[in-house]
Design a protein around this nucleic acid. Structure first.
Lengths: 186, 186
DNA sequence: GTCTATAGACAGATAGAC
DNA sequence: GTCTATCTGTCTATAGAC
């Protein structure tokens, strides 16, 4: 792998683990096995490196959301996405960034976070719309609201799991929302 | 207010806004209007100050949860708690701390976060149990899982709102889960 | 492209005067 | 109790050699 990619990858990991404020150029260089000069040759500084890393994480989130386009009923697809294998205790590489004041305050850095989560919700809304059209869900339900609920359960599940130091609350939260959705499914 | 309380209060605010890593002793002192000597007289250091601040925030979270013990049906009480007035874009002062590696890694600092969120879920479970006993909810539903879902919707709602830079996704997520719960309520 | 040297500012804390 | 001085290390970057 090229040095440039190594640097972006290390930044991605560190942003995930420690956030923007908690990630220093020095730590990035050490993890990437690159020197100061190398890093500042490829990137103008920490911010530009973070931008590349965030965009890459956002792309991965959307790539995983492609699973929602698989065959099956709407509820099967939502279930598969929620039950997807995840590193629950590490949290969401994208959602995590919303707790970083320097990222939220910077329009350029926040944009990929905003857009990827918005698109995920939009895709979920489409799937739920299909399910509603197929009679899986009552026509009165607001699918956009339900999509927000589903994504929020994921993001909040991570929070509860990290607080507890165990993945169980995440699994409970997912089971709970799926039970509510399934109760309408016939 | 005493200097000691001012210091704890400033720390609470800064932990909320910038997290543990992003909060320096100097910033705490400036916001509290206290000097170095004063801070280190009252507290051994940043960590001890953070511990006091986190415990206070955890207490406030539980105090707000007392609303769940108000009169009314289970669903009315859950709705009132979810619709409670919140500074959505600021996020949850307690949940926010789960993204801080230094807090999650330190059992003493993580304990108040863990316990308060666990108790909130426990209280919600009781309320939902009452609702189930009263016939508001189907007997087959797992109330502990539903409680985790409800809290996760809140915590995840904050994440979505901060990503979007607007409170709407939070409101949608709350509306979605309430619609699912209400559909069973008769 | 990568290296080393350098630099001003801040982090986090200690020491001792008052 | 609070103040000022001091200290070691890190943050984030720049400069220039190779």
């Amino acid at each position: 792998m090229g040095t440039r990619e190594q640097l972006v990858d290390s930044t991605r990991e560190l942003l995930w683990e420690r956030g923007y404020v908690g990630t220093s150029p020095k730590a990035i260089q050490q993890r990437a096995g690159a020197g100061q000069g190398s890093m500042y040759h490829h990137f103008a500084g920490k911010r530009e490196l973070a931008l590349a890393a965030i965009e890459r994480s956002a792309d991965e989130l959307l790539a995983a959301a492609d699973e929602l386009c698989a065959p099956g009923t709407a509820l099967e697809r939502v279930t598969a996405y929620l039950r997807r294998e995840r590193e629950v205790l590490k949290g969401c590489p994208v959602g995590r960034l919303t707790q970083d004041p320097d990222i939220v305050a910077d329009p350029q850095l926040r944009a990929p976070v905003d857009e990827s989560l918005a698109r995920l919700r939009a895709r979920l809304t489409e799937v739920l719309d299909e399910g509603r059209a197929a009679g899986e869900l009552p026509a009165v339900l607001d699918t956009a609201a339900l999509a927000a609920t589903v994504v929020a359960v994921l993001q909040g599940g991570y929070v509860l799991a990290r607080a507890a130091g165990a993945p169980e609350p995440f699994d409970q939260a997912v089971s709970g929302v799926l039970a509510l959705l399934a109760a309408h499914a016939h």
